[in-house]
Design a protein around this nucleic acid. Sequence first.
DNA 1: ATTGACATTAACGTTAACGTAAACTAGAAT
DNA 2: ATTCTAGTTTACGTTAACGTTAATGTCAAT
Lengths: 131, 131
Amino acid sequence: MEQTYTISDLAHEFDISTRTIRYYEERGLIHPGRTEGGQRTYSRKDRTRLRLILRGKRFGFSLEEIAEMINMFDQDRSGKKQLEVTIQYGRKKIKEVDDKIQDMIALRDEMESLLQDFQSRLKQIKGEESR
Amino acid sequence: MEQTYTISDLAHEFDISTRTIRYYEERGLIHPGRTEGGQRTYSRKDRTRLRLILRGKRFGFSLEEIAEMINMFDQDRSGKKQLEVTIQYGRKKIKEVDDKIQDMIALRDEMESLLQDFQSRLKQIKGEESR
DNA sequence: ATTGACATTAACGTTAACGTAAACTAGAAT
DNA sequence: ATTCTAGTTTACGTTAACGTTAATGTCAAT
């Protein structure tokens, strides 16, 4: 239990460049440790965090938004009022995600119905063919 | 039945700039008509198409990808082979969308479970409070 | 101790997707 | 007829999210 990763370990695993990982650090999204010699060293938590970042990216959040969300869930919010605010914000963000999901489902359906059109056209052609 | 729109009609309706709409045209995503004097005039079909473009954008497809998809569903594919290819491609794109949806649902769940943590913490604090 | 593969920072370059400004024209309203 | 609002093209500017290069340091293996 002391599992760490180098920057290229993670770069390979997630199929991104080392530059990208360093850039995320530059933007305050991740905070790896350092070795004696000054090289970055990533813990399991860092790796998990990177996965989260990439997941956020994949559906169109900006790095700034992702930073906001992550840092939010990150702080040691011990006060009651703080916790309540955090939860409020979290609910809002989740709703945003829900909305995006709905939007995508709508697009999916639209695409599907276009495809149906094409398929019935194809069927018709095939029908004519065998006359 | 001759409903048309000006560029700012659509800009207002979809809450985007006229520059954006012109840019989509520049990139070959939409092809409005012109008035005598040279001003762009948008039909209902153009409007529908714009809606599709924006929907595509909203979940992270690039304009190039959107152009590819739209033009695909656009051509008058009368040949059987052509139709089959189009349908294949369409299936592929729909699967991509499905994957994105799955991905987003995973993120949503992740966020939800984080929120649960916070909420149980809050409950605990409230419990202590009333002791 | 010397490779060789991988690491570091610094800084400039690149692309997509527009924003913005200038200089001008068209159309609607008074 | 004039004024005002909205349209046009051209062209340069901007930002996010990295890519790329240079110049140099580190670590593991021989």
